[in-house]
Design a protein around this nucleic acid. Sequence first.
DNA 1: CTACATAATGTTATATTATAACAAATTTAA
DNA 2: TTAAATTTGTTATAATATAACATTATGTAG
Lengths: 132, 132
Amino acid sequence: MHKENNLTKNQQIVLDLIEKSKEPVKAYSILSNVKKRGINAPPQVYRALEKLIKIGKIHKVESKNAFVVCKNTNCEVSNATAFSICQACEKVTEIINSKLSKYLKSFQDNTGMKYKKYNLEFFGLCQKCKSK
Amino acid sequence: MHKENNLTKNQQIVLDLIEKSKEPVKAYSILSNVKKRGINAPPQVYRALEKLIKIGKIHKVESKNAFVVCKNTNCEVSNATAFSICQACEKVTEIINSKLSKYLKSFQDNTGMKYKKYNLEFFGLCQKCKSK
DNA sequence: CTACATAATGTTATATTATAACAAATTTAA
DNA sequence: TTAAATTTGTTATAATATAACATTATGTAG
């Protein structure tokens, strides 16, 4: 919400909007909400999103085509992301767990491929929805 | 490739096509390739895909909006999927690693949320692309 | 400062991915 | 063999994302 350095006007507008939201926000929802602030067309939103992802301010939740603020000081510019997604209420939370990230960052499969990046999405029922 | 039981004609046609492909296939690529077999419109493809995912025959690679055959006899109807994706050649391979799947299936975060399902995508350079 | 390079912007158009809605045909199972 | 459920075929449209290009702003080296 507060002014970040290094960000251009459009990037800041888009980031502000995502930060204000409790839920992941979709690109066209962002667009319709920032029209009053002078952003008129999809490319302006997608460009800002691309940059914000690149610098690690936000992440894309792939299974939802939606965007969330990075809550993790350790995810190292978007290279190691994990989310918990409730299948009922659709709530998405970034998982911050150093054991998990250490495990995955050092994971090696049998092909010898060295991983630079991962994205993990867990699905289940959150506390609230479980008790319904 | 061989006739599977339980599948309808369209489901079988779509599955055959995905099985024949070495790479993840996109929905509209499937569509254009099965027109000669009588599938004319997107909903026919998407319905087949939905069913095939549900029964665990195929997976969706979320970061690519593309579909691959399940290579894993243990992924238990799509509930535990992991992929290795080369950022250069875009090759996608399903990771079959029981340590990894055990670790993730039993993973618990601090919210008490119990996970039923996960999808993990690793990115890096495959052997071939690394040595270029 | 100034000129070059780089990045960001604004804009129009279009490509790509996915679903809604509904009538008809087929399969399943009571 | 009828009712229910599923799958199909079809048209239309919604939702997500990028191409292309002219313009403006910003950063940086000389």
